[in-house]
Simulated scan of single mutants.
Amino acid sequence: MTVVVASVVVLDCAEPEKLAVFYRELLDAEEVDATANRVEIRAVDGVRLAFRRDVNATPPSWPRPENSLQAHLDFLVEDLDEAERKVVALGGRPLEAKDAAGPYEERGCCDPAGHSFTLRLRRDTAPKQG
C-alpha cells in the first residue's frame, strides 16, 4: 500500500498569495488549495508547489558564498529568452552566478520573494536502444 500519495515543495515567504500568483502564471498552473497561511498550486505536468506564510522569512543569498544554497527549483523550458522575459514581467529577476555551467544552457533567477530557481533548456532525449 502506498503511504505517500503526492509530494509538494513548500516555500516559506511573507506573502504566500502574491508568490502563488507569480508561480501560477509562470507555470500556467491552477490554485488547488488555500488557507490563511498557505496557498498550493498544481502545474499541468502535475508539479505541486505551496507557499507558506512566515512573517520572518528572509530570502536566501545564493549565489553569494557566505550562505550555502539550501534548495532551489529547476524549470525545463523551450526558449531561455522567452522564459526569462516572463520571469521579469511577473516580478522575478535574473541572478548572475559567477562561473555558470554554460552561457546558453541555463539561467539563474529568483522569484519576487528571493527564492532562487534555474531555467534550464529542455533537451530532447532519444529513446535508449539495445
Rank of each mutant, 00 (worst) to 15 (best):
T2R: 10
V3S: 08
V4L: 06
V4A: 05
V4D: 00
A6H: 02
A6P: 00
A6D: 03
S7T: 13
V9I: 11
V10H: 03
V10E: 06
V10A: 01
V10Y: 00
D12E: 11
D12F: 02
C13K: 02
C13Q: 03
A14Y: 04
A14E: 14
A14H: 10
A14T: 11
E15C: 04
P16Q: 08
L19S: 03
L19K: 06
A20I: 03
V21E: 05
F22S: 05
Y23C: 01
R24A: 09
E25K: 13
E25L: 12
E25N: 15
D28S: 15
D28K: 15
A29M: 06
A29R: 04
A29N: 09
E31P: 04
E31Q: 14
D33W: 08
D33S: 13
A36V: 05
N37G: 05
V39Y: 07
E40K: 13
R42D: 01
R42W: 01
A43G: 12
D45V: 12
G46T: 00
G46H: 00
G46Y: 01
V47P: 00
V47K: 00
R48D: 01
R48Q: 10
R48A: 11
L49E: 01
F51L: 00
F51M: 04
V55C: 10
A57S: 12
P59M: 08
P59Q: 12
S61G: 04
S61Q: 10
S61N: 03
P65T: 07
P65D: 01
E66G: 07
N67C: 14
N67Q: 15
N67H: 14
N67D: 15
L69W: 07
Q70D: 09
A71W: 14
H72G: 10
D74M: 03
D74R: 04
L76E: 14
L76N: 13
L76F: 08
V77M: 01
V77F: 07
V77T: 02
E78P: 02
D81Y: 06
E82Q: 11
E82W: 06
A83T: 07
A83P: 08
R85I: 12
V88C: 10
V88D: 12
A89F: 07
A89E: 13
A89I: 02
L90V: 12
G91T: 05
G92I: 04
R93S: 13
R93Y: 05
L95A: 00
L95M: 02
E96M: 06
E96R: 13
A97P: 07
A97L: 13
D99Y: 10
D99R: 10
D99S: 08
G102V: 02
Y104I: 12
E105S: 15
E106V: 08
R107T: 05
R107V: 12
C109P: 04
C110V: 11
C110K: 11
D111L: 11
D111E: 11
P112C: 11
A113G: 10
G114H: 11
G114F: 11
G114W: 13
G114L: 10
H115K: 01
H115C: 00
F117I: 03
T118S: 13
R120T: 06
L121N: 15
R123V: 14
D124R: 12
T125W: 10
A126Q: 14
P127V: 06
P127D: 04
P127Y: 01
Q129S: 09
